Simulated assay, not measured.
Amino acid sequence: MSDVTARVADSTGNWVDTHAPVWARPYLRLARADRSIGSWLLLMPCWWSAALAAGVARDVRPLPLLVLLFFIGAFVMRGAGCTWNDITDRDLDDKVERTRSRPIPAGQVTVKQALVFMVLQALIGLAVLLQFNRFAILTGIASLAIVAIYPFMKRITWWPQVVLGLAFSYGGLMGFAVTFGRIDLTAVVLYAGSIAWVIGYDTIYAHQDAEDDALIGVKSTARLFGERTHRALVVLYGLAVLLIGVALALAGAGWPAWTGLAAFALHLAWQIRRLDIKDGALCLRIFWSNREAGLLLFAGLVVDAVLRAM
């Protein structure tokens, strides 16, 4: 199979296709380096938690290093998680138009090669994790159980996005674990708010595959909500904003953090208003825009932490 035909449908025209060595492209696609949005979305709760914890501690000196370490960790662990997902989903991916050109079903990478690549990525993630305190290390390791079971959830529940939320929001706990060596109520509420956000945006993403998923029997909140998706998003995104707001209140956050949350909320409202679940390309664009939503909140939290540390 040629390299062009092996491109995944929603990832063409990126640096992997145009600049990466040909031999490396299948592995980079396994890690979703051609679609970095998932890494950014995994990173956002990490950065939120780190910035909010810095504000509570009134000390931003460790924040730049945490931002960098979380960045590296999120990108490599998302790559490892996606590689695991492709290993477990290789038979299903072959039946879905958007995913049948992924490296394993396309025959570019063997399962054994993918396993070795996954382990290498996980080892880099472990090296990042070992920079933290003992409590944070154990907290981070505990997340692997959620990552391991996620690919199987769409076979048994209509709510696989909940498990994805548990995994992708885990960084909401890590900032407090690293900064304070504990997880308090503020971190737990932030985590819960992020979970609601993840369920919402991944429902939008899953609408791209809803028809194929129905044919092969894969479950998702996109199929569960169907035409009620807009109403479901109002509830999910509204809950996300409410819970994150409670976390800010518990943390004693100031006006910059609340401004960031307001901008985040307005962006989510725009997504709901703009969404057409029958337009797969639009669903993808709106899904991608959640990086900007997350960065708006992060910016507010950083400014707040800096002002509180002065």
Rank of each mutant, 00 (worst) to 15 (best):
V4L: 04
T5M: 11
R7D: 10
R7Q: 12
R7W: 09
V8Y: 03
V8A: 10
D10K: 08
S11M: 10
N14H: 15
W15R: 04
T18P: 10
T18S: 05
V22A: 07
P26Q: 07
Y27L: 03
Y27F: 10
R32F: 02
A33H: 14
R35L: 05
W40Q: 12
L41H: 12
L43A: 00
L43N: 06
M44H: 01
M44E: 00
W47K: 07
W48M: 00
A50N: 03
A51D: 14
A51T: 03
A54S: 15
D59Y: 08
L65C: 01
L65M: 11
V67T: 12
L68H: 08
F70D: 09
I72M: 04
G79L: 07
G81I: 13
C82F: 00
N85F: 02
N85W: 03
I87M: 05
T88P: 06
R90D: 13
L92V: 15
D94R: 11
R98V: 09
R98S: 11
R98L: 05
R102M: 02
P105H: 06
A106N: 02
G107S: 13
T110E: 02
F117K: 02
L120M: 08
L123W: 09
I124E: 03
L126S: 12
V128S: 04
V128E: 03
Q131I: 05
N133D: 08
R134E: 10
T139A: 03
T139N: 00
G140W: 01
I141A: 04
A145K: 02
A145R: 14
I146G: 00
I146P: 08
I149D: 01
Y150P: 06
F152C: 09
K154I: 08
I156W: 06
V163G: 01
L164K: 12
L164R: 06
G165H: 01
L166V: 02
F168N: 10
F168K: 05
S169V: 01
S169L: 00
G171T: 01
G172T: 13
M174D: 08
M174W: 07
G175P: 10
F180G: 07
F180L: 04
G181N: 12
R182I: 13
D184V: 07
L190T: 05
Y201P: 13
D202W: 05
D202T: 11
I204F: 01
A206N: 07
E211T: 11
D213I: 07
D213Q: 04
D213C: 03
I216E: 08
I216W: 06
S220M: 13
A222Y: 00
F225S: 11
G226R: 11
E227D: 01
T229W: 04
H230P: 14
H230R: 15
A232H: 13
V234L: 05
V235I: 12
V235E: 12
A240S: 13
G245C: 04
A247S: 09
A247G: 09
L248W: 04
A249C: 14
A251D: 10
G252Y: 01
W258K: 09
G260F: 00
G260T: 09
G260E: 07
F264W: 14
L268T: 14
W270M: 04
R273I: 15
R273P: 15
L275G: 15
L275T: 08
D276L: 06
I277G: 02
K278R: 14
D279N: 08
G280N: 09
L282I: 15
C283R: 00
R285H: 01
R285T: 14
R291M: 09
L297T: 07
L297C: 00
G300V: 11
D304C: 01
A305H: 08
A305T: 04
